[in-house]
Design a protein around this nucleic acid. Structure first.
Lengths: 115, 115
DNA sequence: TTTATTTATCGTAATATTGCAATTAACAAA
DNA sequence: TTTGTTAATTGCAATATTACGATAAATAAA
């Protein structure tokens, strides 16, 4: 049915997967990496930098804005985008917390272990 | 057109987004969290634990296996799943590296900064 | 062998995503 | 005002994802 059953999951699971989903496209990773590399604002250069049409970039920017990872400031006819420091930190911590929740133990799917 | 233009992005961007995409569904986060919580193998319990049909869970498990985050061991008629330690560590490092690539600087989209 | 159990696969419907051309909106400069 | 520039929005086509019923495959138990 193409529709995710969000209601049967916890807020944490939905929050984390929402962030991951937005990061789940190479163009959006590329946009973030470019904003980081330039270390300041970028306007329409992203369209040239990434090889996608302007409406497509605009759409990806909106999704990144949707989870707060970037922010845009209007400056004349152009818009400056940059990383949102606070949200970046929060998101990084959320991810780090998730990955650190697993600590390897010996008994797992080994040949003699019973399930 | 619904198809991602992977060829215009770097391997790093494609790898990272591929992982994020798989993590971008609450059911797959829930599966991982349950495997972590049980700290050992789980077989068909996942179907009861998560509220989705058996073919749906099987499909999600296949995607998680696809990026190596979990592994399955056949045991009689059932299959034991657990976290793949090595891949988990590697994935965690890849994510951590990405998030640590941004270090906040002062000049960014502030009212007086020129783009 | 027959039956039961468990998981993977197939097929399909509903919905979501990706990408772009065309257009609109907003502003700056003549 | 008119013209040009930049970015967002709209509309649409192609493809992907999600979910599940039905079925198949594999093994265990009777």
């Amino acid at each position: 049915m193409g529709v995710t059953k969000s209601e049967i999951f916890t807020k944490e699971q939905n929050d984390l997967s929402r962030i991951a989903k937005v990061l789940g496209h190479p163009a959006r990773i590329a946009i973030l990496q470019h904003l980081i590399k330039i270390n300041a604002c970028v306007c329409g250069e992203l369209v040239k930098e990434i090889g996608l049409a302007q409406p497509t970039i605009s759409q990806h920017l909106r999704e990144l804005k949707g989870i707060g990872l970037i922010q845009g400031t209007v400056s004349g006819t152009s818009v400056c985008y940059c990383i949102n420091k606070e949200q970046w930190k929060e998101t990084a911590q959320l991810m780090a917390l998730f990955f650190s929740s697993f600590s390897p133990s010996e008994k797992c799917c080994d040949k003699d272990s019973k399930c």
